[in-house]
């Protein structure tokens, strides 16, 4: 368990890994995030948070077997570990407390 909060991109990536379960690797994570956030993420961009999360002990990574559509290269799959789950729980708690009572101001105004 880290003392500091993890960053926003890390949070998003960690969530993505959790949601993707057994199929979390560079491309799927990126696609997932792009779909959810609607913003462009470069392929490399997901690796920096992934790397940090792994260093903080919230994720573990392992290699799949090589596949032909990847030019014979292996996938590096990520899996959330118990510490990661705990971190997500923590984040959810903090976030919901923080966001409580927040009206959708911008949407209201647009209407």
């Amino acid at each position: 368990m880290t003392d500091k909060y993890i960053s926003r991109p890390e949070e998003i990536v960690l969530l993505a890994v959790w949601k993707l379960k057994d199929d979390a690797y560079g491309i799927t994570i990126r696609n997932f995030i792009q779909e959810m956030t609607g913003k462009y993420w470069s392929i490399g961009a997901v690796y920096v948070p992934l790397e940090r999360l792994e260093k903080k002990g919230l994720l573990t990574s392992y290699y799949s077997s090589p596949s032909p559509e990847r030019g014979g290269r292996r996938k590096r799959l990520f899996k959330i570990n118990p510490a990661g789950i705990k971190e997500l729980d923590n984040l959810y708690r903090i976030n919901s407390v923080l966001w409580k009572g927040y009206p959708k101001l911008s949407l209201d105004e647009k209407k």
Binding site: R30, I43, G44, Y63, R70, G71, R73, R74, K75
Partner: peptide, 10 residues
């Protein structure tokens, strides 16, 4: 391994 693989897959 991972990054180049990702690129090629995409």
């Amino acid at each position: 391994e991972s990054f180049v693989g990702d690129l090629l897959e995409s």
